[in-house]
Design a protein around this nucleic acid. Sequence first.
DNA 1: GGGTAGGCTGTGGTCCGACCACACGACGGA
DNA 2: TCCGTCGTGTGGTCGGACCACAGCCTACCC
Lengths: 228, 228
Amino acid sequence: MKNYELVLHRVEAELAAGRLRIGGRLPGERALAEQLGISRPSVREAVRVLEAMGVVRTATGSGPDAGTVIVAEPVSPLTAVLRLHLATNHLPMGDVVQTRVLLESWAAREAASRSPELGAVSALLDRMDEPGLSPEEFHLLDAEFHVALAGLAGNVLIAAVMESLRSAIHGYVLAAVPNLADWEATAVGLRAEHRGIVAALAAGDGEGAAGLVAAHIHGFYQAARLPS
Amino acid sequence: MKNYELVLHRVEAELAAGRLRIGGRLPGERALAEQLGISRPSVREAVRVLEAMGVVRTATGSGPDAGTVIVAEPVSPLTAVLRLHLATNHLPMGDVVQTRVLLESWAAREAASRSPELGAVSALLDRMDEPGLSPEEFHLLDAEFHVALAGLAGNVLIAAVMESLRSAIHGYVLAAVPNLADWEATAVGLRAEHRGIVAALAAGDGEGAAGLVAAHIHGFYQAARLPS
DNA sequence: GGGTAGGCTGTGGTCCGACCACACGACGGA
DNA sequence: TCCGTCGTGTGGTCGGACCACAGCCTACCC
């Protein structure tokens, strides 16, 4: 058992027991080290891991916002895991695409049955109509749109995974834009497909929306010829 | 920009560029510190994060297996993220169950269309028939069974997520066993449901298998009355 | 008396140097 | 030829020190 794991187990146990809540603060690194009988570097390694896991946030200085604060940020760690494992080439891009299709088409089906509020989503589409958007700006809005769609289904885990998938592949998507025959034409098509998806949702046609989403995703990845 | 992030970016870049591969080794902590102009503690914090992300494994001593070697282990970090965020109570158990149903029923549908090799899965079921299994032993085999099912669909990302979900909730499932009216009777029912799922897969009935999987999961969670 | 500028204090961020435990591999003796 | 031993390089841990930062509190000045 390595020393820094003592801190991890301690924090997880206190979270599970309810003694640590979101917004609460960990004892100072020096105090924690003394409590557990380990050194401050060991504590710091553990805090780094917790930070990478999206469980704490650290800030220097003093005051209520300083120190090591408990947060709940599952998206950034998921994104980091996916990005790193994509980089190792042991996570095929095709599997990521397939997962996106599965999660997003499910979300569309689920969202349609909840007659959701589509105002925010439509506002995103309006912003994507603005002329002169760079591919990067367009895709950031596009990612927001897809994540918002996933959020409509009301499952925080699936929404978090979706957002992580989108963030993790953002760089790859941008790098593949030059593969497109005609970016402007592609953008026009993507906008139309988005409108179609929202229209199907508004009409309560979950099955139709799911099909459109799947076609939308598959279509783009085939056009961009993303690697593996 | 904190110093340890230099190491993270360096490693990710070298992975993406193919200069670091699975089985390869990072430079020693002292060497890495000198190369990047930072201290060894900073390097160690980064290595800890990479280890937590399932990208490297560290071992003391000398020889080919010692040092910091590149691995690809996406399951343990995903498990850790889920466990920690379940502990914060900001990830509802219901969402986890819903996600399991979605992923597993999809996997069953997909697997059925591939006429998979069911020998290994059946062997697991035989082991679960052994009398005198403790609830813990039973659920470990049960988890293996469900993960193996998900693996039949051939999507490494979904399989990894499934395995993480199972691992993350393992403790909660065990803790809920006393909630069951009659553990022995429950186990008999679970065994029968497993056999039914495998039979549907063997018959190529993906839709049927998907429905059985969904009912199987929902049934257990309702019987065990898992929290939120 | 009120307001402001300064220092005080406690936080994480970083670094250094040292020592330990470990395991392979080379060397030397039997 | 075999076996034990020592060397060497790895991560694991520690203590201590100093820095940057930000809120707070005091003391001074108006």
